[in-house]
Design a protein around this nucleic acid. Structure first.
Lengths: 227, 227
DNA sequence: AGTACAATCTTTGTATACAAAAAACAAAAA
DNA sequence: TTTTTGTTTTTTGTATACAAAGATTGTACT
């Protein structure tokens, strides 16, 4: 056993991008833990490539905030603190509100249809109780909204911010007591986008983030206690 | 003559970071023009380093959206289109609104004092008519607000977004007819932060961006006509 | 036993080497 | 003249080499 993230060679990408994706995935899933050092030769051997693509991947992870550089010491996986997470969530609250507002203006008929389906799928997933399935349905739903804004920069920004929360995505889903309100919140968002009611949509989106924040911060405090 | 961005060796940073800063500056000031190819050996010779730090710098510029990678062809300076710019401005409108709202909640007495001074300085700069001085005073003022949010992630985001607008920062200042309203807008923002009046502050910030947007989009259309 | 110091081993930062893909160019055929 | 094809050149993608900074370990000395 032991942590065994492997490179998937099926891609036809430069190695640096393959490495970048592999390392990012490993960090997001927690396979590489915060504070863990990213040693180039070690990673190069593990992934069967030279140091060059490893380094270039690390440069990108650095800019993305997923790793921290320590001068003359190299890279390590960035620490997640309560402060850094609430900073992220604070930004996301505003950005998600913007997303639904723009969606009100610009969503197409097809996208509205897809959003309705995504809402139903989410409800089904919740009823099934399968955490993984719920998380997936949740992502799909939000993805439709973000893309409906037609703003590429916004799509990218939401992705980057989501990334930081990725490790905690199951926590707020595991809490079964919240399930009904999650379904309800999604419903409200869908309905208000349908009615082009920006104010309600925006409030619902913010509430949605607030609820996630509570769970995530609780989780971080729990993790800290353990140490 | 010819474009001569030189590396500044005074720094005590890894070469990749020096190169990164140098290239970014060159792109932002327009010394490297959109569409221009970034050839590694060429840049390496010009800056007197090897290809390695150049490549690592390019990886970061790539993630920042300042350069575009073309497979097996290398990097080129990202094109600025009307769409990409209005995408940026759309996000900035929301983000700047968030900044002033958070500033209302969290600004310290010292920062409020500094903000007042920055407002006065801006007015002085406008009266002097010196475009460079005005731009500087403008940046200083907004910097105080953003930092007053105490949100590191937000500071970084605003910087990245500002970067995209950097090339046009003079345009909306050159338009003398707007000067009085710029001073007035800053005044309103200051007053409303002082009174913790989020709604007014937020509206003023949005208006501020709207005005910039008009000028910038006009400028982009002008540039396109020329071609 | 504990501390200081030297030798060694790691690991990064930077440069260079080499192969393969793409572009540019030239020559030959239609 | 135009098109096609083969060759050369350029440029990227990846690997490796080497030096310098840091960490570690072991040993001598107090």
């Amino acid at each position: 056993m032991g942590s065994d993230f492997q490179i998937q060679m099926n891609e036809f990408l430069p190695l640096r991008d393959v490495v970048f994706n592999t390392l990012r995935q490993a960090i997001l899933t927690g396979e590489l833990k915060p504070g863990e050092r990213l040693m180039e030769i070690h990673l190069a051997n593990k992934l069967g490539v030279s140091r060059t693509p490893i380094r270039e991947a690390i440069r990108k992870l650095e800019l993305e905030g997923l790793v921290t550089m320590i001068p003359r010491r190299g890279a390590e996986v960035a620490q997640i603190t309560e402060k850094s997470m609430s900073d992220v969530l604070e930004v996301r609250r505003a950005v998600d509100a913007l997303c639904v507002e723009l969606a009100c203006e610009r969503i197409s008929e097809e996208e509205l249809e897809a959003l309705k389906t995504a809402c139903d799928n989410f409800e089904d997933a919740v009823n099934s109780g399968d955490v993984k399935k719920i998380a997936q349905a949740d992502v799909a739903l939000h993805d439709i909204i973000v893309r409906a804004t037609g703003n590429q920069r916004l799509v990218q920004l939401v992705n980057t911010l989501s990334e930081q929360m990725y490790r905690y995505r199951f926590e707020y889903i595991k809490d079964v007591s919240q399930h009904r309100s999650l379904v309800e919140e999604h419903r409200v968002i869908y309905e208000s986008i349908l009615k082009k009611d920006k104010a309600t949509a925006s409030d619902a989106a913010k509430l949605h983030i607030d609820n996630q924040e509570k769970t995530i911060i609780k989780q971080i405090r729990l993790e800290r206690e353990k140490r």
